[in-house]
């Protein structure tokens, strides 16, 4: 990017850093788990498992009309638990709720409900139409990237690093391909990586990109300045592990696994593309108005990004050591 147009990145950096300052662990995606265990034919035990930083109660379940609910008992008679199940106040309290139904003489069912899609139609097979999976998982992926200040700061660092539009397309594509690979690999069970070291390494990736940006500005030779897509791909693999951690926390219905994975990733990409386009639009606006900030402030902004990345890295490392 041209120096003059880069100035906007400083403003964006400041906003992201201030947002990050409000909640260093803003990546939390609070999930509630509703377990329905069949004790006798048509009689279920209802149990909530939830934790919320704000100590919010779980959403209120509304069961099919033929079921009678008197916590913790749910009586659905001979018809069994079939029909519409919805969770009220879901979006206001939790990102998502996973509903697990353990049946006596049939396989268990798992559904994921979100604020945008707080109801599900329970069927004996458990297979959901793709539209319903899309309505659940696209918003979850979008929410995850928009709340993931560390991912956004990394993408911002990449944008700072690249020299032109074509290189930006290559770099963002490399990042997307890489994190999609590891996201799929983890959620399909091909590889398993502990979450906390991954989070520490993601924080480190932000600090490294900040150092690379500084080196590039000084004109020092570096691989990342010539081929930023390489660094984007390498660290993209790492960020994919982070996305996978969130998706694993949410829970994936085995019957609908490929579609759920696909739509979660689509949500992540939509958020990422939206962020990149917003930054580009603002860059264009500043260029059009010839609005520039003092040159020193750019260096200060890069140092701030690197400092936040380093702070997160050390904090997460400390957390890792104390366990």
């Amino acid at each position: 990017m041209q120096l003059g147009t880069r100035t906007l990145l400083k403003v964006l950096t400041a906003v992201l850093l201030l947002q990050a300052a409000g909640s260093l662990w803003a990546h939390d995606t609070p999930i509630a788990l509703l377990t329905l265990s069949e004790r006798q034919q048509g009689l279920y035990n209802v149990e909530w498992t939830f934790s919320s930083a704000l100590n919010l109660p779980p959403p209120t379940p509304v069961f099919p009309d033929h079921c009678q609910y008197d916590h913790p008992r749910l009586q659905c008679g001979e018809t069994g638990l079939q029909g519409r199940l919805s969770l009220q106040q879901l979006g206001e309290r939790y990102s998502a709720a996973v509903v697990q139904i353990h049946r006596l003489n049939a396989k268990s069912l798992t559904y994921t409900l979100t604020g945008a899609n707080p109801a599900v139609s329970i069927t004996p097979s458990g297979v959901l139409p793709w539209q319903q999976i899309m309505a659940s998982y696209v918003p979850l992926g979008f929410e995850h990237i928009m709340l993931g200040v560390d991912h956004l700061l990394f993408v911002l660092g990449l944008m700072w690093l690249v020299g032109n539009t074509w290189m930006l397309i290559k770099t963002i594509t490399a990042f997307t391909v890489a994190h999609s690979i590891t996201l799929a690999a983890v959620t399909l069970g091909w590889v398993g990586v502990p979450e906390q070291p991954v989070n520490a390494a993601i924080a480190l990736s932000i600090a490294i990109v900040a150092v690379e940006v500084l080196k590039a500005r000084r004109g020092e030779p570096s691989l990342s300045a010539r081929m930023p897509w390489v660094i984007a791909f390498g660290f993209g693999l790492l960020h994919g592990f982070g996305f996978a951690g969130a998706l694993t926390d949410i829970g994936l219905p085995p019957e609908n696994l490929p579609a759920a994975l696909l739509f979660f990733n689509v949500g992540v990409e939509l958020g990422q593309i939206g962020f990149v386009l917003a930054v580009l639009a603002l860059l264009w606006s500043h260029r059009a108005l010839q609005a520039q900030f003092p040159r020193w402030s750019e260096t200060a902004a890069i140092y701030a990004v690197g400092t936040v990345g380093s702070f997160w890295f050390l904090s997460r490392l400390d957390l890792l050591m104390t366990i």
């Binding site: 409000g22 909640s23 979006g91 206001e92 309290r93 939790y94 990102s95 929410e143 928009m146």
Partner: peptide, 12 residues
């Protein structure tokens, strides 16, 4: 501050 789903946080 609760016009839209607040799970996106107070910033959004």
């Amino acid at each position: 501050a609760h016009l839209v789903s607040t799970r996106f946080g107070e910033f959004y």
